[in-house]
Amino acid sequence: MKLTIDDACYAHQEIFSQFGEITPVAGRDINSACVKDADILIVRSRTQVNRELLQGSAIKFVGSTVAGLDHIDQQYLKDNNIRFFSAQGCNSMAVAEFVISSIINLADKHHFNYQEKTLGIIGVGNVGKRLAAKAQLLGIKTLLNDPIRQDEENLPNFVTLDTALSADIVTFHTPLTFDGKYPSFKLLNQSNFHNISAKTIVFNAARGGVVDESIWQKTQTLENIIDCWENEPAINQNLQKTAYLATPHIAGHSIDAKFMGSFMVYEDLCAFTEQKQRNSIKNLINPGVLSLKSDNLLNALNEVYDFKQDTVAIENINNFETYRRNYPARYEWNHFTGKVKLPIA
């Protein structure tokens, strides 16, 4: 078999070589010529997988090693009997850690007690649930909003969108959707931006387009933390210059998350091709026990990884894509031990 794979997919050669001949291509450069003779396509978020890309190709399987789905035309794949698998949840821990680390740093900057703040989590799927669990460990009160889950599960502790937007800290963790009963495109918009005050901390670590940036750039907040942008990599420089963290869509870019994305696709591809999994694949990430020297939570989290370096790296936005493709090694908290117990949940 022939495989076309985004060359940013973690350990693509080691993980997928058992299936056949691999042609690695930068995600933005994958086009119809690249996939014409391929049987398998494995992508991240930078490839638009649709009729234009796949029509006339031999592709039988598409795997996406990231959690987002807005780059995939699932209906086209279904209509053409092309197997599709998406690594939902692969980066949920990484994104939750990004948010918690930012909150602890902001508490230090603005001299507030994070246990006295409310955290509005909008979208309580894989990431939102992880984040809520960590917040609970830290004693942060959460306001959970997810109308899709609410309709399906009738959860008594969930709140309305307006209530969640009125929290001290508001963070978005929805997919980007344009239709259905609850589309998330411009979920924070002209009609509800009044809930955001000059004392609100706002995160977008979901998808660009969930927040209307044309209004956001005119709205005074306490701080903005922006990892996901409209029109990446041509991001809104007004928001970039004023954000506490302005990062290049890397909240989910831990080594663990990248590996898990590839591994989840690998598992499904083994099932699709009826091949046996290689046990060695599970051991590709083994950094051993990593020790922290810090004696307080703030310093410990920054010792694990300081996200300010990601903001500095793209002060020149021409570095946006290059930095993402060459992102520094970052392990999740479960690998670390030290004087301070990290909120691992």
Rank of each mutant, 00 (worst) to 15 (best):
K60L: 01
L144M: 13
N105K: 14
G56E: 05
A96G: 15
A107N: 10
F98W: 09
Q136N: 13
D108V: 09
A132Y: 04
T118M: 10
N113D: 15
H110A: 00
Q88D: 00
F84G: 01
H71L: 08
N126L: 02
S92A: 15
V95M: 03
D79L: 03
N80K: 09
L144Q: 07
L143V: 07
I72P: 04
R130L: 03
G89N: 09
T65N: 02
D79Y: 03
K129G: 12
V99W: 07
N80M: 13
T47I: 11
I59W: 02
H110C: 00
L137E: 13
G120D: 03
F98Q: 06
G128F: 11
A87Q: 10
T118I: 10
G120T: 01
V124N: 13
L144C: 05
D70E: 15
K134Y: 03
E116V: 01
N80G: 11
N81P: 00
N81W: 01
K117L: 12
L138D: 07
K134V: 03
T65F: 02
R46N: 11
K134F: 03
I121P: 03
K129S: 15
D108R: 14
K141P: 01
I148D: 08
K117E: 08
Q75E: 13
T118H: 08
N50Q: 07
K141Y: 00
A96V: 10
Q136Y: 01
M93Q: 15
K129F: 05
E116Q: 15
P147V: 13
I103K: 08
S86G: 15
T65W: 01
I148H: 06
D108S: 13
D73L: 08
I104W: 12
S92E: 02
L137S: 12
Y114F: 15
I140P: 02
V49R: 07
V99H: 07
P147H: 08
A107M: 08
F84W: 07
L54A: 04
Q75M: 04
Q74W: 00
K129H: 12
S92H: 07
F85C: 07
D79I: 04
T65G: 02
A87G: 10
L131I: 09
I104Y: 12
V99F: 10
D70W: 11
I122V: 14
I103Q: 05
P147R: 12
I100E: 00
I59H: 02
A94W: 04
G128T: 12
A132R: 10
S92D: 03
Q136G: 00
